[in-house]
Amino acid sequence: MERLSYSLKCVVILDLIKRLRDNGSWCGETHVQKAMFIAQDLANANFGYKYIMYKHGPYSFDLTNELAGMRAAKIIDFEFRRAEYGPSIFMTAFGDRIYSLHEEEIQRFKKINGFVADWLSASDVKHLERLATAYFITSKNPRMPVLERAKKINLLKPHVDIISAEEAVRTVDQKKEEAKRQLTIAA
């Protein structure tokens, strides 16, 4: 599994933020968390972000701290775009400079980030947490039947009903197949 330097990890995150926003995503922390979870899995690279089942599905404390560090370094910042929601994340001018310095070195991840952003950008948090939780459960139990995985989601996240959970599991199965075809051909 490939290990990435700190600068390159930052640039991969910046690329993901840029693509999510370009696709019209709200791009709050939940969006970045879930998108990075799937991107890290598809890239089979060691970003060093350990994911566990927690807030709204798979969640990485390491990534939360990484984003805090990037904000402290003024690479990213928060903005409030709508009255009812928490902050959106955007790339600052300094972040743009760091991105330009290393953009060439992350070609491999751009394709994956593009795939993830195309898939998730239109999702609101409710949809996102169902998909990401289904992805997490599926990665841990790849041979488990759809309904069993849906029940597992409902057990861990009782606010997600079994019908929505089933739908999310089927979407994940389909998208994983799609990723296999598109990203393998690209590699």
Partner: peptide
């Protein structure tokens, strides 16, 4: 968690 658009209790 309506502050992030979710129903999950926190």
């Amino acid at each position: 968690s309506a502050h992030v658009g979710s129903d999950e209790p926190a």
